[in-house]
Simulated assay, not measured.
Amino acid sequence: MTKSSKKKAVAAPVAAPTEVEKLGKTALVDLVAGQTALSKKEAAEAIDAVLDIIATSLKSGQTVGLPGLGTLSVKATAARTGVKPGTSEKVQIPAGKKVAFKVATTLKAGL
């Protein structure tokens, strides 16, 4: 065997171009409209309403449970020292809040 033949590796299969890696809002609206008696406009309004309610609840500090999917909650982050990329300069990052997601055990087991 030559050196070049040793280095060759089998490439991982590439996903078909028709497969979507991200489910966007438009596709979600189409799926909801297809599985319910709602029109696309009504499905879009329903999805917008749900997302607004979730965002409002998180902003007020509430935890949002989505059965079969998981739980969204707001977590406090501590102040810390970071490093600026490229310059290695130390930067102080202030304390803040972030949205955390804990996957439901039923979904996790099915993945």
Rank of each mutant, 00 (worst) to 15 (best):
L28F: 03
V29W: 00
V29F: 04
V29R: 03
L31I: 11
L31T: 06
V32W: 03
V32D: 05
V32A: 06
V32E: 06
A33T: 04
A33G: 11
A33V: 04
A33K: 05
A33Q: 05
G34V: 08
G34Y: 01
Q35E: 10
Q35C: 02
Q35V: 05
Q35A: 09
L38I: 06
L38M: 15
L38A: 10
L38K: 09
S39F: 05
S39G: 11
S39H: 01
K40W: 00
K40M: 05
K40A: 08
K40N: 07
K41W: 05
E42Y: 00
E42T: 01
A43S: 13
A43C: 07
A43E: 03
A43Q: 02
A44T: 01
A44N: 08
A44M: 02
A44I: 00
E45F: 02
E45T: 11
A46H: 04
A46L: 12
A46G: 09
A46N: 05
I47D: 06
I47P: 05
I47S: 08
I47V: 15
I47W: 13
A49N: 13
A49Q: 13
A49E: 15
A49R: 14
V50H: 07
V50M: 15
V50Q: 10
V50N: 11
V50K: 04
D52H: 08
D52Q: 13
D52L: 12
I53D: 14
I53S: 14
I53G: 13
I54Q: 00
I54F: 01
A55Q: 07
T56P: 05
S57K: 02
S57Q: 02
S57M: 00
L58V: 13
L58D: 04
L58A: 06
L58P: 07
K59D: 06
S60H: 06
S60R: 12
G61C: 11
Q62T: 12
Q62P: 01
Q62W: 01
T63F: 03
T63G: 09
G65H: 11
G65W: 01
L66E: 08
L66C: 06
L66W: 09
L66N: 05
L66T: 01
P67N: 03
G68S: 09
G68Q: 07
G68P: 11
G68V: 10
L69N: 07
L69D: 05
G70Q: 08
T71E: 12
T71Q: 14
T71W: 04
S73T: 15
V74L: 09
K75Y: 00
A76M: 10
A76I: 02
A76K: 15
A76Q: 13
T77R: 15
A78G: 10
A78T: 12
A78E: 13
A79P: 09
A79G: 03
A79L: 05
R80L: 10
R80K: 15
R80C: 10
T81F: 11
V83P: 09
V83W: 03
K84E: 14
P85R: 06
P85D: 09
P85L: 10
G86Y: 15
G86L: 14
G86K: 13
T87F: 13
T87Y: 12
S88Q: 15
S88I: 07
E89G: 02
E89V: 13
E89P: 00
E89R: 08
V91H: 00
V91R: 04
V91P: 04
V91I: 14
V91D: 00
V91Q: 01
V91M: 02
Q92Y: 00
Q92F: 00
I93E: 06
I93L: 14
P94T: 03
P94L: 01
A95W: 04
K97F: 06
K97M: 08
